[in-house]
Amino acid sequence: MSTDPPSVIAHDRSLGDWIGELVHALDDDPLGGALRLRTVVGPRRARITVDDEVVDVAFVGGRLDVRPGSDGAAVDGSGATSTPVVIALLDGRLEVADAFHGGHITATGSRSSIGRIFHAIEILLDASARVPRLRDLAAEYRVAVGPHERSPRHTTNRRLEEDEHAVLVRLGIEGSGTSR
């Protein structure tokens, strides 16, 4: 996906800076994404790792609190990935499910905490259609990180797809692919 051409590129943004910009941009969502994000996250703290950068994030008094990640600090859940994976996802060359199955994204924590981490990401993705600043940030990120020719590509997990398809057909949720 391409987006609005970035006007100013901050090549030296840290992971914490990018997260701060994303959360700030969500204030522009007319459907209240900023409030929903804070409601979903609540008092929890998460550790986010991209490449070799690690930060701990939380909302304190409604404001985003970003601290350098520390193995000793307690967090409720954590997620990790790499820049090439983020770019491949933005380009539509990699599906989220494939990224998990391929080990390109990892998440640890309680079921509730992991669910909330991905709910928070979904709020950001959903708002991207309505908030120009979020699209700008995607474009700026792509330019800032440079080309990633060897980023993961879409792969088809045939066995998994067939198993899922069989279950959905059995439940009557999906057709068998015959004449409609």
């Binding site: 996802l89 933005l90 060359r93 797809e161 692919g177 015959t178």
Partner: peptide, 30 residues
């Protein structure tokens, strides 16, 4: 309609990627 596109083993390209990530439920449309 006949057959299943996914039998061809050619991946379905889904764009924009950010929205595709949001709508992973439509990764394998009929």
């Amino acid at each position: 309609y006949r057959g299943d596109l996914h039998d061809r083993r050619t991946p379905l390209v889904r764009l924009p990627g950010a929205v595709a990530a949001l709508r992973s439920d439509r990764q394998r449309p009929d």
